[in-house]
Design a protein around this nucleic acid. Structure first.
Length: 543
DNA sequence: TCGTTTCTCG
């Protein structure tokens, strides 16, 4: 009767109805039965009259009528189903803070809603709060909490929760195991990933494709491509069919490990299995082939990708980047044109790459024109754009332009990175303004910025070029005091400086200091020393 | 279940 009544158009608001019911019970001196109010609440929820449901709930609390756990759960579930997450959160917090009875299902509904809403932190918080309360949690709560912490990802907490589950005799689902293994892999924690996999297998769940794919990724990220490939062979032998993701992971691993033949084989194998390569796979192949100088292969895949229409901005950027680095700026421009023709919009990275290409050719006019064009399209220059231009202007000897670029960048609120800073300091040194560079560095140090060893190296080298070995040494001492660790380049510069000023003994002393710190001489360091001995006609030592 | 690309010092 209540259901029919509530569904009808003419029924009054729940506030009025509940108040009337409460009044009646008082007036006629019978105990109000909580059933009637819970049924009423349930009816409002079923009718989708959520405002009335909330009013009814509030009035019940005010009148000391306890809502049933089941009714609250139905209410909460209905809100979540209607995607009214904010309202669901309101109800839940209300229930918890007013001390209304609820149970593990209430917690579960709320946690799931948060996860679907992308709020893993909140889901996790509800779990810990419930765990610290009187609520008796169940296996589903633990699984959901594990999913939430794996999103962070925090594999340590996930493993702890898994342990608690097993201690209570609960066996997690395959999905939960896979989730934890994925989190371990993301954090580079192969030891735990394998431990959890063993636990899964010993609890009677066979290895599946998702877990295997995650583990393959973990292996190659840990630098163990062979284990990834072995696992691949094993699961194929065991009858699992690799899918697109499996192939993507493995091809990416092969490319990063420099095994391009194997990457090609896998691609062929994949096509034979009826799976078309995705753009990610093609991009991996292109980068891989470019990396090992098989540029014909790279171009073949690039042209194919363009023809199939799967080439995206990453595909084009890979090509443009490589061509610019090789000094083939004209060809890079024609790839650019092709990209625009195909309707793919250049990104900041595309612009940065081509700007770099022009800079390296000393074509600052073209570089700056491209820079303006980029700003004109509404793209925002990033810190690297500025760094590249600063570097370009310095190399060209256009110091004022370089300084202007730096100021412009700071004015726009873009904070320089280590790289920008190094470029800037190096540029100043290159144009013979080493003291200015040193002042600039000190100014930054005062501001709390810690320069890295490259900046110091540039300054040391600058002083040496000016024939001021004393200042160079002072900078070296200063960097050591600041806690910046010198590297091979630092020592090589100093050795070069001493050799230049005909002080081969000090050069050798520097060499000793370097080896004492555990640094190995590289080919350049040897070259500098040999050159020093040559100048002294010390043929014996030179040999 | 994966999710890419750009940069420096001797």
């Amino acid at each position: 009767m209540l259901n029919r009544y509530v569904l009808g158009d003419s029924s009054p608001s729940s506030c009025i109805l509940v108040d009337h019911l409460v009044d009646c019970s008082k007036r006629f001196e019978f105990d109000s039965d909580s059933r009637i109010f819970n049924y009423l609440l349930n009816s409002y929820v079923r009718a989708g009259r959520f405002n009335d449901s909330f009013d009814c709930f509030d009035r019940m609390i005010e009148s000391n009528i306890e809502p049933w756990v089941m009714c609250i759960n139905v209410f909460l579930t209905a809100l979540v189903r209607k995607n009214m997450i904010a309202e669901a959160r309101g109800l839940y917090n209300n229930v918890v803070s007013r001390g209304v009875n609820y149970d593990c299902c209430t917690v579960e509904t709320m946690m799931r809603a948060c996860l679907n809403d992308g709020k893993a932190d909140e889901a996790e918080r509800y779990f810990w709060e419930a765990k610290a309360s009187f609520i008796k949690l169940d296996a589903a709560n633990y699984s959901t909490a594990i999913q939430a912490v794996c999103r962070k990802p925090n594999s340590n907490v996930a493993c702890e929760l898994l342990n608690e589950m097993t201690k209570m005799g609960w066996v997690p689902s395959v999905g939960t195991f896979a989730c934890i293994i994925g989190a371990c892999v993301k954090q580079g924690n192969m030891v735990d990933a394998l431990k959890v996999k063993d636990e899964m297998v010993s609890s009677g769940k066979p290895m599946n494709l998702i877990v295997a794919t995650s583990l393959m990724k973990g292996y190659y990220m840990a630098g163990d491509l062979d284990s990834a490939l072995n696992l691949f062979d094993k699961i194929v032998r065991d009858g699992l069919e690799p899918n697109m993701v499996t192939y993507s992971v493995l091809i990416e691993g092969c490319f990063r490990g420099g095994k391009m033949e194997r990457a090609s084989e896998l691609c062929t194998q994949m096509k034979l299995a009826g799976i078309q390569p995705s753009v990610y796979i093609v991009n991996s192949l292109i980068r891989g082939f470019l990396g090992v100088h098989l540029w014909e292969e790279a171009f073949k895949h690039f042209d194919e990708a363009v023809e199939c229409g799967i080439a995206n901005v990453f595909t084009y950027n890979n090509m443009i980047c490589w061509l610019c680095k090789e000094g083939k700026v004209d060809e890079a421009c024609s790839v650019w044109k092709k990209m625009v023709n195909e309707g793919v919009e250049p990104s900041v990275v595309s612009y940065n790459n081509l700007i770099l290409g022009h800079c390296r050719k000393g074509n600052m006019d073209l570089a700056s024109r491209l820079f303006s064009e980029m700003l004109g399209t509404g793209l925002k220059a990033n810190v690297l754009t500025y760094s590249i231009l600063i570097d370009g202007y310095f190399r060209k000897g256009e110091t004022e332009q370089a300084l202007g670029m730096f100021d412009q960048m700071v004015d726009l609120g873009i904070s320089p990175t280590d790289f920008t800073f190094n470029t800037f300091i190096n540029g100043l040194c290159k144009v013979g303004r080493t003291s200015d560079a040193m002042d600039m560095l000190n100014k930054f140090v005062e501001k709390g910025f810690i320069p890295n060893c490259m900046s110091y190296n540039s300054i040391i080298d600058g002083f040496i070029k000016e024939g001021d070995i004393t200042s160079a040494l002072a900078v070296y001492r200063e960097m050591c005091e600041c806690g910046v660790t010198p590297n091979v380049v630092t020592y090589t510069s100093l050795i070069h400086g001493f050799c230049k000023s005909n002080n081969i003994d000090l050069a050798l002393k520097m060499r000793d200091e370097m080896t004492m710190k555990g640094l190995q001489l590289d080919v350049t360091a040897y070259g500098v020393l040999i050159d020093g001995f040559c100048k002294r006609r010390d043929m014996e030592k030179r040999m």
